[in-house]
Design a protein around this nucleic acid. Structure first.
Length: 646
RNA sequence: GCCGAUGUAGCUCAGGGGUAGAGCGCUUCCUUGGUAAGGAAGAGGUCGGGGGUUCAAUUCCCCCCAUUGGCUCCA
């Protein structure tokens, strides 16, 4: 029997007989370790712990602590659920059941069966029952012919389709208990590792993600090796729900929707509108410093504008339907850029005028499909932190870099430290269909963007075939604290529209040339950004953004008059303060202020009024001692300036 | 747009073939209280909309609208 050298992650080497399994190796190290091994990683590939190793290999043992261990467990859990489903609902057809970031799902054609959320506990129970049998996951290589025959028998057209796409010789089946599934693996040693099961939701999903295909039933679930971990996870979900911007937005009276106004059309209540204005002030100051000029444009335009821009041919479906007026066809604008181009074109430009930077918090309307609307995150009326930069090729790199710097500056102000820049490029074979047909310019601009990104050391991920129709783009993906991922901002390069609008400037040689346009919106839309901020801060907005910064709470309403003077002093410092004049006890006033997440409370009774001081209570933190009224006002002012001075 | 769920007072929700309830909020009165809910009384709903079944519908059935979990999409 030959020997194999196994190298462990710490660099140590051990010798075993060829054909040894990862599990055998784990056993040889410690029995406790072996009990926790879910799978292994052999030469970088995740394997079943039972699979024989026949040559010298690097090995790491995967447990629940490893991401790959978790996903192996969840993948196996999907099989376990499928086994339970087959037992409970005979005749169902299985499609695919992969692990995901938090758990797993399985897409199933239920045939004549009906399964609702009320049935999930029943399925969970069956899964636990099967898990307790500690059935081993057995791997078997099968020929394509046998694999097809197996699913012919079951009349499972989904699996047949999957197998038909596979090469003979790479097809494996896994069997646990009485259940066999087409699967690449790997799997956990046996079902007994699954100790806690929660099926989370049931939803429709198109076969292979294509809306032309049949709708299957998708069941999402998650499993854990310990009951306690499941409970912790469920508590976390509850916490996340509490941060949901829709819930907090209602509680804090920031925005609302109304049936008579329409879906996806948010109404901003005074406090929400105030926050919008704060953001706009920030953006206006920042953009002014960066050399932007503000412009204003109407909400509608004639058809021809969008034919020129290319929006109508490419994006008609997501524009509101047209209005016919005086023999012309008008559309609600879904982008500000065509209007801005017309402003660029209104006056002749010399190379000495460039770069030109037009900024506008323009309101746009997009017809998002009804099922895509989601709180403030996906709406049909939106106001973008929009601007368009018109520059020469030589200026492009500097301009593009300056835009990226502006993004980073905002991230600092808002404490956004988790983000990814996605650099979306075009697919050459889709030129003229999805993308403007100009291969040379695509290459040039994509190279320029890539160069700037590499040069400025910004981490990015390149995604092919995701570009805008007029040029490559950078999307900034951010994550709210509750793990919701979304695209905050886009930064796009556009060489196509300057051509289609025939935008020109006169260069130093007295020749006419087309500028490059950069579309950028670091703060995205007000709607999405405020939605994000609500979840990011859990409604506890920083002082500069909080609609109400200070609430004065008199110990009893006897002191209301005295408190009015304090209110006046704070207002003289431009502090947004209010006075709780209700005849309630102080405990009650504090509770209400805490719940409205007012950053500072001032508790005022006879003592404070006599001494000319205020007793300060900080939201979420409690008593902060006393200060002179003016001193407190200056402190608040400084706190606000500190954040915005970044 | 597709599959599923939900829609009852301003909010959170209970109820259920005989025209409706709780808590909070709101109004009024009492209380004047020192760091997270003082007490009492009162107002407030064509039970999302439209049809149908029924002696009778908020409740059962159908259609629509909206919200929502996903899928697809997001210039």
């Amino acid at each position: 029997m030959s020997l194999v050298n196994i190298t462990l992650p710490d660099g140590s080497k051990r010798e075993y007989e060829s054909g040894v399994s990862s599990m055998d190796i784990a056993m040889s190290i410690s029995e406790g370790l072996a009990r926790n091994v879910l799978a292994s990683k052999v030469n970088g590939e995740v394997w079943d712990a039972s699979r024989p190793i026949v040559r010298d290999s690097d090995l790491s043992l995967l447990t629940w602590k490893d991401e790959e261990g978790k996903s192996t467990m969840w993948h196996s859990s999907a099989h376990l659920m499928a086994e339970a489903m087959e037992a409970l609902y005979p005749g169902i057809k299985l499609a695919i059941g992969p692990p995901i970031d938090n758990g797993f799902y399985y897409d199933i054609d239920l045939m004549e069966h009906e399964v609702t959320e009320a049935d999930l506990p029943k399925i969970e129970k069956k899964m636990i029952e099967l898990a307790r049998q500690k059935n081993q996951f057995a791997r078997k290589e099968v020929s394509k012919k046998d694999a097809l025959a197996y699913y012919e028998e079951k009349q499972d057209q989904y699996k047949l389709e999957l197998i038909n796409d596979l090469e003979d010789g790479q097809i494996t089946f896994y069997t646990q208990g009485g259940f066999t599934d087409l699967c690449r693996g790997p799997h956990i040693p046996h079902t007994g590792f699954v100790k806690a099961v929660k099926l989370l939701s049931i939803a429709g999903a198109y076969w292979r993600g294509d809306e032309k295909n049949a709708m299957l039933t998708r069941i999402y679930g998650i499993t854990f090796p310990k009951q306690g971990e499941l409970e912790t996870y469920l508590e976390m979900l509850e916490e996340a729900k509490k941060r949901d911007h829709r819930k907090i937005g209602k509680e804090l009276e920031l925005f609302t929707f109304d049936d008579d106004v329409g879906p996806g059309l948010p109404l901003w209540l005074p406090k929400g509108a105030f926050m919008i204005e704060q953001l706009e002030d920030l953006a206006k100051k920042t953009e002014k410093k960066a050399g932007y000029q503000r412009v204003k444009t109407p909400h509608i335009a004639k058809e021809n504008l969008y034919l020129t821009s290319g929006h109508l041919p490419y994006y008609k479906d997501s524009m509101f339907p047209p209005m016919e007026l005086d023999g012309s066809t008008y559309y609600l604008k879904s982008m500000n850029c065509p209007h801005h181009h017309k402003i660029f074109d209104a006056l002749p430009k010399s190379y000495k005028d460039l770069p030109v930077r037009f900024a506008e918090y323009g309101t746009c309307y997009r017809y998002e499909k009804s099922g895509e609307l989601f709180g403030l995150m996906r709406v049909r009326a939106l106001q973008m932190n929009d601007a368009h930069i018109y520059c020469t090729k030589q200026q492009f790199a500097d301009e593009f870099r300056a835009v990226n710097d502006m993004y980073l500056k905002y991230f600092k102000i808002f404490g956004i430290d988790k983000y990814i820049m996605r650099f979306s490029t075009h697919s050459p074979e889709k030129l003229g269909k999805k993308y403007v047909d100009n291969a040379k310019l695509w290459k040039e601009t994509e190279d320029m963007v890539r160069d700037v990104l590499i040069e400025s050391g910004i981490p990015y991920k390149e995604v092919p075939d995701e570009a805008a129709f007029y040029g490559p783009k950078i999307d900034v993906q951010i994550y709210s604290v509750i793990g919701r991922e979304f695209t905050l901002a886009t930064n796009q390069v556009d060489f196509a529209q300057p051509l289609s609008f025939d935008l020109t400037y006169t260069n130093a040689n007295n020749e006419s040339e087309h500028p490059i346009v950069i579309h950028r919106a670091p703060l995205g839309t007000h709607e999405r950004f405020i939605g994000f901020l609500i979840e990011h801060y859990a409604g506890k907005f920083p002082l500069w953004l909080a609609p109400e910064q200070v609430r004065i709470l008199p110990i009893s309403d006897k002191f209301n008059e005295g408190c009015k003077n304090i209110l006046q002093s704070l207002e003289n410092y431009d502090i947004r303060a209010s006075l709780d004049e209700r005849g309630e006890k102080i405990g009650r006033k504090i509770r209400d202020a805490e719940m409205s997440k007012v950053p500072y409370m001032l508790i005022i009774g006879g003592n404070e009024l006599d001494e000319g001081v205020v007793s300060i209570r900080k939201q979420g933190e409690g008593d902060q001692g006393k200060m002179k009224t003016e001193e407190f006002a200056e402190f608040i002012q400084q706190e606000v300036n500190k954040i915005l001075a970044v």
